[in-house]
Design a binder for these strands. Structure first.
Lengths: 100, 100
DNA sequence: GCATTATCTTTCCATCATGGAAAGTACTTT
DNA sequence: AAAGTACTTTCCATGATGGAAAGATAATGC
């Protein structure tokens, strides 16, 4: 019933949730969606990559460098586990973390 | 879409979840259920009391002092908000993990 | 009466996490 | 050459966390 600390930190939870909702997301999109600084996103993305949860892809749009993030299979699975564990912790109260 | 940091800390989330499932819970029960030390529970309970989320009741069982915790109305409401916010963050992923 | 137990609370400490600013990297545009 | 784009890394200050140890208070055991 452990809450994976890599995912639980609020900023990373939000990053992972954004990525879980899409196949891939741009650096700037994630940063602006969450309203965080470049450095914070860069550091959390690296932490998630180190954990094996996020893939960081670098490429170009025209001549400008761009970075995209996506969840790895391991990341998706860890996120699903995380949500399940949250549910276990919270559910005795009768509340749910799930939509609907 | 803020996750109340008083509740989000894993240990306090578990404490609050336990309390949300009951009217009142004993110090020893909560400590043993979560597997934490006396000092940690004592400190987190104080923090939750300071936030207005938990009521700490002291009394006796026979001649031995005992402490009980319960959520205040404010605490229940903050917890419900917390879970709602969690839902908002997580739900775009479309996870279909079922409660229970 | 004094030591021990019970039930917490508070202090101490060492560690880790977090975020933003600033500086750095690499390349491009003007 | 200077400035801009798109990050990454370093620096730093702040705060959170947990357990052990020491306290506080009262009740039993011997």
């Amino acid at each position: 019933m452990e809450l994976d600390p890599v995912i639980h930190a609020p900023t990373r939870l939000q990053i992972v949730s954004v990525l879980a909702a899409a196949e891939e997301a741009e650096f700037g999109f994630v940063r602006d969606t969450l309203g965080i600084s470049d450095s914070v996103l860069s550091k959390h993305a690296s932490a998630l990559e180190t954990a094996g949860y996020v893939r960081i892809r670098k490429g170009y749009v025209g001549k400008r460098p761009k970075t995209w993030f996506s969840l790895t299979e391991q990341g998706r699975s860890a996120f699903a586990d995380y949500v399940r564990n949250l549910q276990k912790i919270v559910s005795p109260s009768g509340l749910t973390v799930l939509p609907g």
